[in-house]
Simulated scan of single mutants.
Amino acid sequence: MMLSLEEVKDFVHSHDPNNYLVIAGGVLAASALTFGLYKKITGKRTKKVIPKDVVIVHGCGRGPYCPSLSPFCLKVETYLRMNRIPYQSDKDLEMSSKGKIPWIEYNGKVVNDSSFILQYFNKKLSIDVDRVLTDKERAISRAFQKMIEENLLWCVALSRWVYGYTDSRWTGFGWFIPKVIGRTVAKNAWAAGIGRHTQSEVEHIFDDDMKALSDFLGSKDFMMGSEPTEIDCTAFGMLAQIVWHSPKQPCETWIKEKYPNLKEYCLRMKDLFWEDWDECITHGGTREATR
Rank of each mutant, 00 (worst) to 15 (best):
S96G: 09
S141T: 05
A143P: 05
P250Y: 04
T290V: 15
I117A: 05
Q119D: 13
G59T: 09
D276N: 13
L37K: 03
L80H: 00
F273M: 11
F11E: 09
I242M: 06
E227Q: 03
G172M: 05
D113L: 11
K47Y: 12
K146M: 06
E6W: 03
R138K: 14
D113T: 13
C280D: 00
T34R: 09
D276W: 06
S70M: 08
D208V: 13
F72M: 01
G237R: 09
C233F: 11
L158C: 03
T253N: 06
D221Y: 10
M238K: 05
T282P: 05
V162P: 05
S200G: 00
L262R: 08
W254I: 00
E94C: 14
F216Q: 01
K39L: 15
K40W: 09
S70I: 01
Q249C: 15
C266I: 04
F144M: 01
M95S: 12
I117T: 11
F116N: 06
T234I: 13
H13K: 10
L28R: 03
P250R: 00
I281N: 07
L153N: 00
D271G: 03
V22Q: 06
A32T: 07
P250A: 02
G108S: 10
R183L: 15
L239G: 04
I281P: 10
P51A: 08
P228Q: 05
A189P: 08
I41T: 07
F11K: 00
G99N: 08
H204S: 12
E203H: 14
Y79N: 02
L213E: 00
A192E: 12
N83W: 13
Q119A: 12
E6H: 13
H283N: 15
C73M: 03
D53C: 07
R183Q: 13
S115C: 11
G164K: 02
F116W: 01
P64C: 08
F176S: 06
Q88D: 03
S246L: 09
E6N: 06
A240H: 06
P67N: 01
K48F: 11
I50C: 09
Y79T: 10
V55C: 02
V57D: 06
N122E: 09
V54D: 00
Q249K: 13
F216I: 01
R138D: 06
N83D: 12
V180D: 04
G195R: 12
K270V: 05
V55L: 11
I181Q: 07
V111H: 05
M2L: 04
I104S: 09
T253H: 12
E149S: 04
K248L: 13
V202G: 02
P102T: 01
R268D: 01
V8M: 03
M223F: 15
A29K: 08
N261C: 07
T184I: 15
K187Y: 15
D278C: 15
L158Q: 00
A143V: 12
P64H: 00
D92V: 13
S214A: 11
A30E: 10
Q88L: 15
D271N: 12
E105F: 07
G61E: 04
A29V: 14
L213H: 00
D167H: 07
T134L: 07
D90E: 15
H15K: 14
V156S: 07
E275N: 04
F11C: 07
V132C: 14
D53Y: 09
M2T: 09
L158H: 04
S114A: 09
L69M: 12
E203Q: 06
G225V: 12
D207W: 02
